[in-house]
Structure formats: C-alpha cells, structure tokens
C-alpha cells in the first residue's frame, strides 16, 4: 500500500498527488513514469513522474480525470492509500549537455514537462517554456514553470489569458525569430505533439516527444504500447517514452490510443451511476 501524502486539485480536471514510495523516489529521473493500481480490482495505468523528493521518499503525479480509473483516483483522499505504485519505468530523458531548449507543454503535458524544464534550468541551460491551455481556468503549474525557465510564454486557445493561440503559433514565431534550440521537447496530447513536429520539421529542429500510450505492465511484457518510430516497431515503455518526434507515426499512435474507448465510456457511466448511488446512501 502506498500513502497519499498530499492531494491538491489544480483545476476541475487535473489533480496532483504526492505518493509515498521511497524505492521509486530514490531512483526516478525526469521523463520516467510509474504504473499504479488504485485498488485490488483496479486496472494498471501509467502516469508520468511530475516531481520527486528523494529525502521525503515521495513521488508526485499529476493526472487529468479522463476515465474511470482517474475518477476513482481523484476520489481518494489525502492520507489514504492506493494499492500499487511501481516504478520508475521507461528511460530517463536525455538532458545532459543541452544548452538551449524549448519545452512545449500542452494542458496536462505541462505537468509531465515540468521536471524536465526544472532539471534543465538547474543545469544552467537556457529554457524557453511555451505552455498552452484551452482557457484561463485550466492553467496549471504557472508559478512552478516560471521558476524553472528563462522565458515563459502562456498561450490559451480562447485568449482568456496570455496570448491568444496555440503553442504551435508561439513556437513557430520563436523559430522564425531565429531561435535555434539543441532540442525542442514537446509534451501534451498526441495531436499537439504531432502539430509541434510539423512546425519544427521545416526548420530541421530536433524535436523530442513523450508518448503516453496504453500500457498494462510497463516493463516490456505486453507490447500494447507499441508504436512505429522510423519504420520500426518500438515499445513506449522500455524504448521510450521519449522518441524523436519526426520519426513517430502519430496517426497510428492516435488510432491505437482509442483501442478501448467504448469500454472506457461505459466504465465512466457506470462509475458515475454507482458514485451517485453512494452519495445518496448518505442522505437521510
């Protein structure tokens, strides 16, 4: 059992949890992920490490409420426990020697990109962060990100905060202005990463993406996280999750991510129903 040391609602859809897992905290690096199960009957889901504290022995995860399991996880309280928490899995991001980097975070992707920006900033690299959200209510980790970069650019789809537009608009203008980066790190929904790659490609700008695929074990055993990179099949869990974005077959990856969409929808409905019932039980 793994204790939830801290729980913080970052926005109506995004929750932060600090989990007591000393073995994972001792070893994890930016870019790596964990697999957790909320309870004995739960499914295993991968979540990227958002932060870690080796001394406290805790790992921070930040997740969006998208399915039954994340709903169930969000319903767990501070001080409570989750059944399983395994990691650190996947390869750490290769950050060594980078001098100038653009970190592009889309929505929840900012949480996953944060430890990389922070590590790069601590290494003394020049870090441009472009953070994009649908609107001002969904903004997360603004202060943290600002403290972990040289320039922070905020974009919202509706213009309710920061600049009006997508992360790709800002990135393109930065590249057009002559900025050259050792690497652009793009983390967010697959569709965003795909468009970021489309923007950087004409500039021949090396771009690394973090592939958040469906997984079961996370250790190379099931192969359901497989994707095509440069014409070869790779496993996101052991070969990644970071890949050269210009080589990733995003169409295939986006299609594969919909493998269990119908079952997920049904599970959400069922959870909502049973959850309401439970709430009603308390009403006298």
């Amino acid at each position: 059992m793994y204790r939830i040391v801290k729980k913080q609602v970052l926005n109506p859809q995004v929750v932060l949890m600090e989990i007591e897992a000393p073995a994972v905290a001792a070893k994890c690096q930016p870019g790596q992920f964990t697999v957790l199960r909320v309870n004995e009957q739960g499914e295993r889901i991968p979540l990227t490490v958002a932060d870690f504290d080796r001394e406290k022995g805790t790992v921070t995860i930040i997740f969006q409420i998208v399915g039954k399991t994340t709903m169930l996880l969000a319903d767990q309280e501070e001080g409570g426990f989750i059944t399983d928490f395994v990691g650190p899995l996947g390869r750490a991001s290769e950050l060594e020697g980078l001098k100038k980097v653009a970190v592009i975070g889309g929505g929840l992707g900012c949480a996953i990109a944060y430890p990389q920006a922070k590590a790069l900033h601590e290494m003394g690299a020049e870090v441009d962060v472009v953070a994009g959200f649908r609107d001002k209510d969904l903004i997360i980790l603004q202060d943290e990100m600002k403290a972990a970069c040289t320039n922070y650019y905020l974009m919202t789809d509706d213009g309710s905060a920061g600049e009006h537009g997508f992360v790709t608009n800002k990135l393109e203008s930065l590249l057009k202005a002559g900025n050259q980066y050792d690497v652009v790190i793009a983390i967010g929904p697959m569709i965003m990463m795909k468009f970021v790659c489309a923007v950087t490609k004409p500039f021949n700008q090396k771009t690394i993406v973090s592939m958040n695929t469906i997984m079961v074990d996370g250790t190379g055993m099931c192969g359901c996280c497989r994707l095509t990179v440069g014409g070869e099949t790779k496993f996101a869990c052991v070969d990644g999750p970071d890949f050269d974005g210009h080589l990733v077959d995003f169409e295939e990856a986006m299609r594969r991510s919909k493998m269990y969409l119908d079952q997920e929808k049904a599970a959400i409905e069922e959870y909502k129903k049973s959850h309401e019932c439970n709430l009603m039980k308390g009403v006298k």
Partner: peptide, 11 residues
C-alpha cells in the same frame, strides 16, 4: 501488425 485488434498473447 499494429492495427487495432492485434495483440501479443502476453497482453
């Protein structure tokens, strides 16, 4: 082999 509906026996 990477179409939706192809699985490893392990998975």
């Amino acid at each position: 082999e990477n179409y939706n509906g192809v699985f490893s026996a392990n998975e």
